[in-house]
């Protein structure tokens, strides 16, 4: 440990506070009967946009110019999308895609 136990707890609480602020703020500001129309609108259109953000966010550190060239990721993504459009079974698509990706990075693209 680099910090004293008390300092560690202080950092922990600071991180928790900063995080909780991001979780509570929208509710504290806008969760009432006459909320601004813009907020209602954003609540409706944000979810698909945020899921897009999360997909890219997860893949942000994929190296595209070094060996592997993002191929395992690309193959797994195509497989997940195809599986899901075909059977529309969440667990099958996610499970299948994850196992395929594990095989690719552990056995194929080493």
């Amino acid at each position: 440990m680099y910090l004293t136990p008390l300092q560690t707890i202080a950092i922990m609480l600071a991180v928790a506070l900063g995080t909780q602020a991001t979780r509570w703020l929208p509710f504290l500001l806008f969760d009432r009967e006459n909320k601004p129309q813009l907020v209602t609108y954003l609540g409706r259109v944000l979810p698909p946009a945020v899921m897009g953000l999360l997909v890219v966010y997860c893949l942000r550190s994929t190296p595209l110019t070094a060996p592997r060239y993002g191929l395992p990721e690309l193959i797994a993504l195509v497989a997940i999308a195809a599986l899901h459009l075909w059977r529309r079974n969440m667990l099958l698509s996610i499970g299948g895609g994850t196992v395929l990706y594990m095989l690719l990075v552990q056995l194929v693209f080493i």
Binding site: I11, L17, G18, T19, R23, P26, V39, L42, G43
Partner: peptide
Amino acid sequence: ALLLSFMVNARHLFYGLSLM
């Protein structure tokens, strides 16, 4: 620590708006 965790987790602001 407080400011950094707010910034890194700022995406949660959108979650609240979406789940309200």
